[in-house]
C-alpha cells in the first residue's frame, strides 16, 4: 500500500505534536506502524471530508426550507389549491396565471409596487448618501448619531406601521397638525392615492435610511485619502470632490444598496397591510396602496386560493430576475464608460 508507506513516513518529520506522541523508533514494531497508518488515514479523511461536513448543515436546511419550497411553488401554481385543504391539489395548467393576468387588481398592485418602490427607494438612498457624507466629517459624538439613526432599524415593521397610522391620521395626526400650522389643509393620507403611497413609503424610508447611510459611510471611509488631497490641490471644491471622487468610488456600494432595496421594495407586505389596519388586505378602500405582496396574501389567505398565490409569487420572482438583469447591464455599461 503506497499511501500507507509515505504517510507513515511523514509524521516523524514534524514530530512533537499531540497525535503521534511517541518518539520515533528506528524500526517500528508492526503494531505501532499500523496505529500510525490508521491515524494518518483518519487525518487525510478528515482533511478531505470535513469541509463538506461544515457546509452541509446550511445546504441541508436550505434544500428543505429554501430550494424545495421555491420549486414547489412553481408546481403549486399549476394547480388549484384551497387554503382549507392545502394538501389537495388539482391540476389546473396555466389557469391561475390567466386568472391573475385578467384581474385588474393584479396590474393595479404591480403598478403600486413600482411607484411605492420608487417613492421609497430613491429619496431613501439619496438622503442616506448625504447623511453618510456628513458623518464622514470629523464630528463630536459621532457614535451617538450613528446609533441614533439605527433606532428605526431596530423598530419592527408592525410597531413602525401602527405608529405611522397614528402620525398620518387625517383629523388628529401630528403630520396634518404640523402642516396645518403652516397653512396647508388636512390631507387624507389613507384614502387618497398619492398621499397614501407616500405615507406607506415613508415607513420604509424612516426604517432604512440610517442603515443605508452606515453602509455608505463604511464605503466612504475606504476611499484612499490621497484621492481627495490631489483633488483639493487641483482646486476642486468640496462639492466637486463629492461628485468626482466620492460618487465614482462608491459605485459598487450604491449598486449593491439599489439591488437590496429593490428586492425589499418588491416584497413590501407588512407596511401596506398594517397601514390599513381595519380593512383587511385590500390596501385601502380602492386598493390604492395594495402591493403585489399584499395582493398575494389577499388571494391566498383571504380568498383562500393558494394556487393563485403561488402564481403571483412566481410572477414576482420573474420581475425580480428582470430587474436583476437590468441592473447587471447598467452596471456593465457604467463600468465600460468609466
Amino acid at each position: 500500500m503506497a499511501t500507507r508507506h509515505d504517510t507513515a513516513a511523514a509524521p516523524p518529520v514534524k514530530e512533537g505534536g499531540a497525535a503521534p506522541a511517541r518518539p520515533p523508533a528506528e524500526a517500528l514494531p508492526p503494531q505501532e506502524a499500523k496505529r500510525r497508518a490508521r491515524l494518518s488515514r483518519r487525518w487525510q479523511r478528515d482533511v478531505r471530508w470535513s469541509p463538506y461536513a461544515f457546509v452541509s448543515p446550511f445546504f441541508l436546511l436550505f434544500a428543505a426550507f429554501g430550494l424545495f419550497p421555491l420549486i414547489y411553488t412553481a408546481w403549486a401554481s399549476l394547480h388549484t389549491v384551497e387554503l382549507t385543504a392545502p394538501t389537495d391539489m388539482e391540476w389546473a395548467g396555466l389557469k391561475n396565471y390567466v386568472r391573475i393576468f385578467d384581474d385588474e387588481f393584479y396590474w393595479n398592485a404591480a403598478k403600486n409596487t413600482l411607484t411605492i418602490g420608487i417613492i421609497s427607494t430613491v429619496p431613501q438612498l439619496m438622503m442616506a448618501l448625504g447623511i453618510a457624507h456628513i458623518l464622514n466629517y470629523r464630528l463630536r459624538a459621532s457614535t451617538f448619531y450613528r446609533v441614533a439613526m439605527l433606532a428605526p432599524y431596530a423598530t419592527s415593521i408592525a410597531s413602525a406601521s401602527l405608529l405611522f397610522v397614528l402620525l398620518f391620521g387625517r383629523d388628529y395626526g401630528m403630520i396634518n397638525w404640523a402642516l396645518g400650522s403652516v397653512g396647508i389643509d388636512h390631507i387624507d393620507w389613507q384614502n387618497e392615492k398619492w398621499p397614501s403611497q407616500f405615507a406607506v413609503s415613508s415607513i420604509v424610508i424612516w426604517r432604512w435610511t440610517g442603515y443605508n447611510a452606515l453602509i455608505y459611510l463604511a464605503a466612504m471611509q475606504a476611499i484612499p485619502q490621497d484621492l481627495y488631497e490631489s483633488a483639493a490641490l487641483d482646486g476642486a471644491s468640496r462639492w466637486q470632490q463629492f461628485i468626482h471622487v466620492t460618487l465614482p468610488s462608491l459605485r459598487p456600494t450604491i449598486l449593491f444598496t439599489v439591488v437590496v432595496s429593490t428586492i425589499g421594495a418588491s416584497q413590501l407586505f407588512g407596511e401596506p397591510l398594517l397601514f390599513n389596519a381595519n380593512k383587511g388586505a385590500s390596501g385601502g378602500a380602492e386598493h390604492q396602496f395594495q402591493t403585489l405582496g399584499l395582493y398575494m396574501y389577499e388571494q391566498g389567505w383571504v380568498n383562500q386560493h393558494l394556487g393563485r398565490a403561488s402564481a403571483i409569487a412566481w410572477t414576482m420572482f420573474l420581475i425580480l430576475i428582470v430587474i436583476g438583469i437590468v441592473n447587471y447591464v447598467i452596471s456593465r455599461r457604467l463600468r465600460a464608460s468609466s
Binding site: 421555491l70 411553488t73 389549491v81 394538501t87 420572482f317
Partner: peptide
C-alpha cells in the same frame, strides 16, 4: 449558490411551507 440564495424572496416559499406546516 449561497450568494444566489440571498436574492430569493420569502414570498416564493410561503405557500409550500404553509402546506408543510398544515401536513
Amino acid at each position: 449558490i449561497v450568494i444566489g440564495t440571498m436574492m430569493v424572496p420569502p414570498q416564493l416559499q410561503v405557500v409550500p411551507l404553509y402546506m408543510m406546516v398544515a401536513e
